[in-house]
Nucleic acid binder design. Structure first.
Lengths: 131, 131
DNA sequence: CTAATCCTTCCCACGACGGGAAGGTCAAGG
DNA sequence: CCTTGACCTTCCCGTCGTGGGAAGGATTAG
């Protein structure tokens, strides 16, 4: 199976597959006589795994940890859970940060009439001279 | 006022100030005989403005729009509000995306006992073979 | 035989900076 | 007057996770 077919089968672009190989997430696959990458079923499994972890927002570094744990028969579920919990914390922080931006902006936008006149509390807030 | 003092005064690093100038957010300031950038009060106002807009999560492109509106005497508050509302929408989308990751992960983490045994629903979910 | 479609490696770009090198400038103190 | 240290300048590289595209070889279908 060539890279294009692997991409088709997994929904991971050929570009990304090569990148994952380059950064060490994916084992370098067999090569055909012409130098084409040849993928096996287990490579597709790994790609699916990476794809799902990425959709859950894990960084490639975290995906790398998860892959290592996946392959490690001696892992404990506690190790996996720790990676997940840390990620959940990061997501919560990010959400809180974005939510506070939304709160401030929504408050300002409400006070902005949105008409043709130039007066705008949003700009007033941005140009305020105090901290 | 040199760049270091402007940085000190506004909390925007000298690196960032130069970068904002490079990408056209900030007017190139006067230069001293030796080629040092010399900042005036209005440059500091602009830096404060940029700083606040960045804290609200606007991209530099959006900050650029806001600065243009700020300087445009003929603007309407509706134009400003439109930029803000678009940004609020983007923030909401991002929050929803992150929240759905949190929901999935929290659900999985709850079912993972976190002990020493290797069985882990998080890994099981990631390696699932169906879509 | 040729044309289309694959594949390869390579470099460039994004956004929004930070780090650090190499070199010029300025102010204070000996 | 000279040195030292703190400042400033430009320049290039790295981040993170890709996408785009060029140049060139391989394969396949007609």
């Amino acid at each position: 199976m060539n890279i294009g077919q692997a991409a088709e089968a997994t929904g991971v672009s050929a570009k990304r597959i090569r990148y994952y190989e380059q950064v060490g997430l994916l084992e370098p696959p067999q090569r055909s006589d012409a130098g084409y990458r040849v993928y096996e079923a287990r490579d597709l499994h790994t790609l699916h795994f990476i794809q799902r972890a990425r959709r859950l927002g894990f960084s490639l570094a975290q995906v790398s940890e998860l892959l290592a744990l996946w392959h490690d028969q001696g892992r404990s579920s506690g190790q996996v859970k720790a990676v997940a919990m840390k990620h959940i914390d990061e997501l919560h922080s990010k959400i809180d940060e974005l939510q506070s931006m939304v709160d401030t902006l929504t408050h300002l936008a409400k006070r902005c009439d949105g008409g043709d006149r130039p007066d705008c509390p949003i700009l007033s807030e941005l140009q305020r001279s105090e901290s």
